[in-house]
Structure formats: structure tokens, C-alpha cells
């Protein structure tokens, strides 16, 4: 009885932590090369949107906005991968889980706020006049 339990303990221990030394240092610190790649990418991804706006390259405001936001999102991912060393394995995947949860909450908060606040007048009663000048 006692022997089998201790065997279980051993099996559990080796299964959960195949390399005890790696535990607690779950972050991959990257190398000089990955830092430089990340830096080069973020310089490019910063310079292009600044150039687009400062030189007024795209005349259509809507397209320019979408392009700039696209560059911003890509650069955020570059930072997360090359500087914050995010991957699916660090801390047993929990950093990634926390990040995904946060991103979901951010998307709900941002899109929800913008959607609601820019549609406040939708479905109001026709008699409800928003402009005080029309009341006279």
C-alpha cells in the first residue's frame, strides 16, 4: 500500500515536472538576434504609419485610418513575441491564457463602448427631438 502510493508520488512528480530546474524560469529570454529582429521590425512598423500621416500619402481618411491601425496591431504582436517573449509554453500556457482573456475583455469593452455611444439616437421615439432649436 505504502509502496504503491510512493510510486504514484514519484510518477506524478516526474510527469508534472520533467525538468525541475526549468520550472520557475519558464520565460524564454531570447537572444541578441531576436531582440534586433524585433527592434528592426518595430522601427519599420513605426516609421511607415508616421510617414503615411506626415507626408499625407493616402488621401482617403477612412483607408488611411484602417492602414495605420493595422500597422499598430501588427507592431503590438511583434512586441509581444520579440520583447515580452510570449509563447504558448511559458508558465505552462497561463500567460497566454491570461493574455487571451484580456484581449477578449478589451475587444468587448472597446467595440461595445464605441457601438453604444455612437448609436445613442437609434430607436428613439420619433417625437423625441434631440435638437433644442427644433422645439421653438
Amino acid at each position: 500500500m505504502s509502496a504503491s502510493t510512493s510510486h504514484d508520488t514519484l510518477a506524478h512528480g516526474t510527469h508534472a515536472h520533467p525538468n525541475p530546474d526549468a520550472h520557475g524560469d519558464g520565460h524564454d529570454h531570447g537572444t541578441r538576434r531576436t531582440y534586433l529582429i524585433g527592434f528592426a521590425l518595430s522601427v519599420i512598423l513605426t516609421a511607415i504609419p508616421f510617414w503615411l500621416v506626415m507626408a499625407d500619402v493616402i488621401s482617403d481618411t477612412m483607408i488611411a485610418t484602417i492602414v495605420i491601425m493595422g500597422f499598430g496591431v501588427v507592431q503590438i504582436f511583434v512586441h509581444m513575441v520579440y520583447f515580452l517573449h510570449m509563447n504558448t509554453k511559458s508558465e505552462g500556457g497561463w500567460t497566454m491564457m491570461a493574455a487571451i482573456f484580456t484581449i477578449i475583455v478589451i475587444v468587448i469593452a472597446l467595440s461595445g463602448s464605441l457601438w453604444v455611444m455612437f448609436h445613442l439616437n437609434t430607436n428613439m421615439m420619433p417625437g423625441h427631438i434631440m435638437n433644442p432649436a427644433d422645439l421653438i
Partner: peptide, 9 residues
């Protein structure tokens, strides 16, 4: 950011 990376290395 990159100088902090070098500090880490």
C-alpha cells in the same frame, strides 16, 4: 526597449 533587452542579455 532594445537597450533593456541588452541589459537582460
Amino acid at each position: 526597449s532594445i537597450t533593456y533587452g541588452f541589459a537582460m542579455l
